[in-house]
Every structure is written in structure tokens, then in C-alpha cells.
Amino acid sequence: MISSTTNPHVKFLRSLRDSVRVRRSERSLFLEGVRLVAHALASGAHLQRALYAPQQLATTPEGARLLQDLAPRYGAFPATPEVVAAAADTRHPQGVVAAVARPELPPRPGLRLLLDGIQDPGNLGTLLRSAEAAGVGLVMCAPGSADPFQPKAVRAAMGAHCSLPLQADLSWPAIGEALAALPTVYAADADATLPYFAADWHQPAALIIGNEAHGFSPEAAALASQRITIPMVGHAESLNAAIAGSIILFEALRQRS
């Protein structure tokens, strides 16, 4: 039972939690909470390290099942609740933190989603969750976006990282090359005139969702072949980026279904 908050396993998990550089070099996801860790393991993710508090996990049925799964695994270490909390990112941890190898999933058929300067990790994670649910074939994060692998984004994505093709740290030339063969690249724009539901989502296409405050970048604007909007009758100037993107993604799914 690990009882010291200065244990090397705690230090490793903290470094993943806090440093984008370490997450990139280790190619790892920092996971916290019963549901996220259980989902990752059930999805076949390779466990690199885990700290778990047995008595805390045993207090719920879901935690008890995860405890049975973790106990025999190489790289999983029982620890006191204080040790787990020292490595955790939330105020009230559920008794487990873990690092798993980042899934490297190839692009699949379907809509391409480009996140252009999405800086709020909660919005970014929510968009990943919606993209996975809507069957998006590839999500690309443009320069200026938040790290999609930081803990808050991972929690908001609710397991999408384990099954959604996702590419980060891309240059604009690489993004342009990836989208060049598509007949249409839509950009969500509050000032556009074409309603999102009037767009043709049956054909191969990409969707650009821009920065929460400033819209899309000049580089993204140069890639867009058509701009679409979500008509509104209230007084709001625009919708939250995650909500707007989710609405459009599920219209694309509706048409393709």
C-alpha cells in the first residue's frame, strides 16, 4: 500500500496531469474517476500506471467492479485515499487515477471536424464527445486550440478518446492537405445566411468550428468553401461553440442516416 505522496508513481501521474510536454513525450492519457478508467480498460487501452484506494472504490458497485479489474493488473498499485488525491485533478477524487497509452486510431469514413482555436478544454472535450456520438471519421485540432489530452478535456469527452480518431499538433499545411480532396468544407459562422440544415451533409465534407470569442482564423477561412449558420429567434448573438458544433454534427448524422 503506497502511503507517501512523494512516491515516484505519484510524481509521474502528476507530471502527466500538469504538463502537455510530458503527455506528448509519453503519448499518454491521464484518467481520473471510476467511469473513465473502467471505460478505457474495457476499450482495450494499455494501462501504464494506476493508483487506487481499495476501501474507497469498494463503497460503490461500479467501484467494486473496477477494483476487481485493477487489482491483478501490472502497473496498478493500491494506495491511501490521500495519495490518490495528491495525484488527482479534481477536488473530490473517486479513488482512482491512471495513465493509459494514448490510442492511435486511423481516420475512418465520415465527416471531418476541424477545431480551430477552441481554447476552453471543457468545450473541446464536449465537442469530442459529440463527434464520437455522431460518427465523425476524424477530428483535427488546429494550432491555437487547447490540448485535447489535458485532464479537463478528457473528462468532458467522457471516454471519446478511446474510440474517436483524433489528431493534434497539426500544422496548417497538413490540415489543408487532409481537407483538399473534400468537395465541401463548411465553416460555422453566426453571420452566414445558409442554415446548417439546408447544407448537403450526404456528400463527403468537413466542418470547421472556430474560436469561442473570435470565430475562425484566417487560415481556416481560406479552407472554407461555404459558411453556414444556426438560425435563432432570441436575443443571443451566438451559441456556445460546443453547443453549436453539436447541433450541426447531429444534423449531419440525421441526413446521413
Rank of each mutant, 00 (worst) to 15 (best):
S43G: 11
A76H: 09
A190F: 12
I230A: 06
L170G: 08
F250E: 06
G33T: 06
L127M: 08
P8F: 03
T80D: 04
V96I: 03
I118T: 13
V100N: 09
L128S: 08
A134N: 05
P183M: 05
Q167V: 10
L115W: 07
P78Y: 05
L16R: 00
V154R: 09
A142L: 05
L36F: 05
V37E: 01
R256S: 05
S25L: 10
A85V: 00
A188W: 10
L170H: 09
S28A: 01
Q203C: 13
G75C: 11
F197Y: 13
G110P: 15
G110T: 03
A174K: 09
R129I: 08
I118L: 11
L115H: 06
Q55W: 15
A205N: 01
A88S: 05
A58R: 12
Q119Y: 14
L70F: 09
G95D: 01
A157V: 13
S171T: 14
R254W: 10
A157W: 01
L111V: 02
D191W: 13
A178Q: 06
G245I: 04
A205I: 00
L166A: 04
P121N: 02
P106L: 14
P103H: 06
N240H: 07
C162K: 15
T126Q: 04
S3I: 14
H92F: 13
G215P: 07
L164V: 07
V37N: 02
L179R: 04
Y186Q: 08
P195T: 10
G215Q: 05
G75V: 11
A160R: 09
A53C: 02
G63K: 09
L127E: 06
L223F: 06
A134I: 03
G125W: 00
Q255I: 10
G176D: 05
L194N: 10
